[in-house]
Amino acid sequence: MRQFSYSRAETVSDAVAALASNPEAQLLAGGTNLVDLMKYNVTRPGAIVDINRLPLKEIEDLPNGGLRIGALASNSAVAYDPRVQERYPLLSSAVLAGASAQLRNAATTGGNILQRTRCYYFYDPSTPCNKREPGSGCGAIGGVNRIQAILGASDKCIAVHPSDMCVALAALDAVVEVEGPDGKRDIPFTEFHRLPGDRPESDNTMARGEMVTAIRLEGNHFASHYTYLKLRDRLSYAFALVSVAAAMEVSSDGAIVDLRVALGGVAHKPWRDKLAEAEFAGQPANEETFRQVARRLLAGAKGQGENDFKIPLAERSIIRALKQAASGRPQDQSVKAIQ
């Protein structure tokens, strides 16, 4: 770890100013990802600005039936909030599918969406990694790539985003509220994370000096037809090989009114294809449709060798998740039989 200076921000503008004035500064919230990366010398900030005292812990009702989740609300607070459980059970379920109870108690909402990839090469400073050290190359291409991306990768980076919560937030069309030197702005969730392209060092579309202050969720009609299905190497406390956040609104005659499918573990960002989803409005909510959805979503999928299996696994997972959502029987994260 590099030694650093430490300060506590008392207001959001303090934090933004501290971030803007020092290119080596990073914000500390729950610490579950940042401290981990600092100990591995993957991230070596010269200054830490502790934002835990900022008044961003609240989960507030919005007039339209939505919720604003403060950036410092813990993952546990979000997952177990009765309003989240009632209105956004998909979000609650996805959060509970991730990490461990201890980590969820410490990790924050803002920190979760800013967490870095678990790519082995990113985590190992003695190997090349364009994300960690732009221009150094990608160790994962041609290397151990079982966990890497099948969608949206580039020849610079094939890493995947590790979050479960973000997959649900992408499906739910959340909005990220950020604040920076130039004031506040909203970023639609699906535009918050980016694909690696030529700049894999950049995980998201925030500008330098901006910080996440809240996640906003609008009212929705997905509370009865949703699921979060996560496939991983052990039955808990492991990152996703493939995960699916699915939500739908179904008409009384069994047709899809509104469809949402987001994928985790397959791309540099939670993967959603809104155009593809729209094509299935009006289609019957049955297995054949779901198969077409899966194929449509995975049309451009490309494996790296060891991770080729993710393509059929994702296809089958999407179909199963949509069946779960359509039938109103979401995956229970404590029950290990896949419903």
Partner: peptide
């Protein structure tokens, strides 16, 4: 010549749920 998962997040030993 390197083990790329030299940690117990990615070298999976059975957890409670298993």
């Amino acid at each position: 010549g390197r083990i790329m998962n030299p940690n117990i997040a990615e070298y999976h030993v059975p957890a409670h749920a298993d």
